[in-house]
Design a protein around this nucleic acid. Structure first.
Lengths: 227, 227
DNA sequence: GGAATAGTGTCTCTAAGACATTATTCT
DNA sequence: AGAATAATGTCTTAGAGACACTATTCC
């Protein structure tokens, strides 16, 4: 066997929705290269460690949350020669969707982490180190597309949520307002999307809202549509 | 920098539709490991070579066709420790969609290549070497899904094609019969999917059929639906 | 004419989108 | 009472699916 040895890393696009804002977790790099610039959290895959395992390890380190219940999926792999000045490094990008975390972000090693509005980062291609702007762009598009035909929006919600909280996720991620009446019909009548719990809450003010949890569906039939 | 060096390879899922049959290009391995078993074509990424460039190189080697006009996209990356007995190898899987090739498959180095019906391979998880059955499953599902919302089915057709040839692609890939009348309406009335050329052909027998070429659309609105 | 394939038209029903109205809480 | 939010209902229209019919070739 005759191959060129390369470094294999994972980078994480960790997304959340907080108070109606669609945000991504970025770190300010504490070491070269690109020291002091914003970047996606990530790191090298270790010996004997699988790709998803590496991503989950990084995710737990960054969010301080046991990542078992967090949605994590692979997005794509970036491996242009020259993308990392340290040498030939191939990075497997992952997308993580987390609910509004009760815990603030734990300070990770030699770097400070912050939630930044996705829209602010997307409009400024020079803001992120490496090819991370491209990775973020691809991951965000994946997330936006998946909200249409999968029940993935619930991954941004707590275990129990109301229809308007769910709608708020769609509005934040897609950046468009949705009709509350039509959305309610879609969400509650699409087979397996959400399941009523019987209980209600008034945490959003006004008339008490029914609480739901995510249903068993893997895909939504028919899908929701973006503006 | 402190990383575990790994081999980075690409594996190719090359799909075509020939005479109504949905087929994948497999090679019989001429060297260990898994010598003599069926596998996806692939190889290591070279120094200074990008991931897509490596995939295009392999594609050209296997199909004997200049791959510029062939649809190629990344599917996912597979990197479980132990997936390759030779050592730690991470493989970036790609999906290629090729028209019914005039050229038969050129014999590649120390291995014989054949077009095999996808359905035959999918039902037999033990048929392929390494984790290639999993890779094939994922790639085929990607292809099937993309036919719904993208004009990708045209990648299986020649430059000029008829509506029934296009329908044949859908039927072969999805494995379901489609109503010719409804399909014709959908294909010709979906903005940017296909463009009429004015010419006709009788190569399929019966009344002459209009010839089309692929249109400029990137996504189909509204999408086609599987059974 | 008969077989084969291409293409158009019609009907029904589902569901999206626009929008009105009623219900239940809090201040 | 008034504000705020939740939930249900109605109307119109686009489009999918089922299916009948006409058109143009080859034999």
């Amino acid at each position: 066997m005759d191959f060129e040895p390369m470094g294999v890393a994972t980078d994480l696009v960790i997304l959340t929705v907080q108070a109606g804002s669609f945000e991504v977790l970025l770190i300010r790099r504490g070491i070269p290269p690109h020291k002091g610039r914003w970047a996606l959290p990530g790191g090298f895959v270790r010996e004997g460690e699988g790709l998803e395992a590496a991503a989950r390890r990084e995710l737990a380190e960054e969010t301080g949350v046991g990542s078992e219940r967090i949605h994590l999926e692979q997005v794509a792999t970036y491996g242009e020669p020259g993308r990392d000045p340290r040498g030939r490094v191939v990075s497997v990008a992952h997308l993580a969707l987390v609910p509004d975390l009760p815990t603030p972000v734990a300070g990770s090693d030699a770097a400070s982490a912050s939630w930044i509005p996705v829209a602010d980062v997307l409009v400024d291609p020079g803001r992120l180190a490496f090819d991370h702007h491209r990775i973020l762009t691809d991951a965000v598009e994946r997330a936006r597309a998946k909200l249409e035909y999968s029940p993935l929006a619930t991954a941004f919600c707590a275990d129990e949520f109301t229809v308007s909280e769910l709608r708020g996720v769609y509005e934040a991620v897609w950046g468009v307002p949705l009709d509350p009446r039509n959305f309610h019909r879609k969400a509650t009548r699409t087979e397996g999307f959400v399941e009523p719990l019987g209980a209600t809450t008034t945490r959003d003010g006004g008339r008490p809202a029914q609480l739901f949890r995510r249903g068993p569906a893997v895909t939504l039939h028919p899908p929701l549509t973006r503006g």
